[in-house]
């Protein structure tokens, strides 16, 4: 009987999903915005039409950046994470610190998955955990990159939430995403909070 390798399937599924997001964001939406700028050039400044075009350009940008961090490959993991957390702090009254000492040993696909994992974990903390602060670290160590999100939410409550299967922002998705890049996920709870740790092996140079 044929048995599908679910890990491999998920890895391929994630890759395809990210490729499609990149195509829509970088090709389709950017093309539409360029067309709108051309249209704007034939429009008188400060008229209703001119302002409407600006507003559509803004909305398209928003959709595009929600789909995918803008120019992720070129901007890099550190700046992309630091900029992503800025508005979250005020909006959700969550104190977020970062410690990113990553030496770019992984490929861009892996870096994007790290970004997605941090994004999912942060949304989970915001929507479910009663944390006041989070510390995000991405640190290169011999043979691995260690991603840690340490929050000061209440111990067991948080661990139980994280362990719930099918929790869309929760552990199942984070584990699956980290597996897709060969990573291992661990949770540690103590009186001072909860730590989510993902260890991603650095591939040996050929």
């Amino acid at each position: 009987m044929y048995e599908a390798n679910t890990d491999l399937l998920f890895e391929q599924f994630i890759k395809q999903l990210e490729d499609e997001k990149k195509y829509i964001s970088c090709e389709v939406l950017e093309h539409i915005n360029h067309e709108l700028v051309s249209l704007k050039k034939n429009t008188q400044e400060n008229t209703d039409t001119d302002r409407k075009i600006d507003s559509i350009i803004g909305q398209i940008r928003k959709v595009s950046s929600e789909l995918r961090p803008v120019l992720f490959e070129e901007v890099g993991l550190k700046i992309s994470i630091e900029q992503f957390i800025q508005p979250l702090q005020d909006k959700h009254d969550l104190f977020i610190t970062t410690d990113i000492r990553y030496k770019k040993e992984l490929g861009k696909d892996h870096e994007l998955q790290i970004y997605r994992i941090i994004q999912a974990a942060l949304w989970d903390i915001i929507s479910r955990a009663k944390a006041k602060a989070v510390k995000i670290s991405v640190v290169s160590q011999p043979g691995e990159v260690l991603v840690t999100l340490k929050d000061n939410s209440f111990r067991f409550e948080r661990e139980n939430e994280l362990r719930k299967a099918y929790n869309p922002g929760g552990l199942s998705v984070i584990i699956a995403r980290s597996k897709a890049i060969g990573g291992k996920t661990m949770i540690q709870s103590g009186n001072d909070g909860t730590s989510l740790m993902i260890s991603i092996p650095i591939p040996l140079k050929k």
Binding site: K40, S65, V75
Partner: peptide, 22 residues
């Protein structure tokens, strides 16, 4: 690209001006 992250990278790389096409 009207995005702070892109601007920060551009500044880091030595761009002197940053203007949006529209």
């Amino acid at each position: 690209h009207n995005e702070m992250s892109v601007f920060i990278k551009a500044k880091e790389l030595g761009a002197k001006g940053y203007v949006l096409k529209e």
